[in-house]
């Protein structure tokens, strides 16, 4: 039987679905019998999801403009 510590050390790979089927079966067996690990697993999955849900990555217009100006300046220097 896996201990809670064993379970935690595999949790990340389990959530990424990158454990082999034998370990996966053992982890799932543990989780069914251990309410604490079930909660930790569930809330860690939600932690990842809530960050993935934050997809906002637009760039402020002034920052974009200054970046393009810096690149244009570099282009001009190289063109000389």
């Amino acid at each position: 039987m896996l201990t809670c510590k064993d379970f935690l050390s595999e949790l990340s790979d389990y959530l990424d679905d990158s454990v082999d089927s034998e370990i996966k079966a053992k982890l799932e067996e543990h989780i069914k019998a251990c309410p604490n690990c079930w909660v930790v697993c569930d809330t860690t999955r939600k932690t990842i999801q809530v960050y993935k849900g934050q997809t906002e990555c637009s760039i402020p217009l002034d920052i974009h403009a200054r970046l393009m100006a810096a690149i244009e300046k570099k282009c001009a220097e190289r063109g000389k």
């Binding site: 990340s12 809330t43 860690t44």
Partner: peptide
């Protein structure tokens, strides 16, 4: 990478649990 990711996720889980 895997070991750091695991620890990062677990630490964030702790912090977010306080709010959620």
């Amino acid at each position: 990478v895997k070991s750091r990711l695991l620890r990062a996720r677990l630490q964030l889980r702790e912090k977010l649990t306080k709010f959620f």
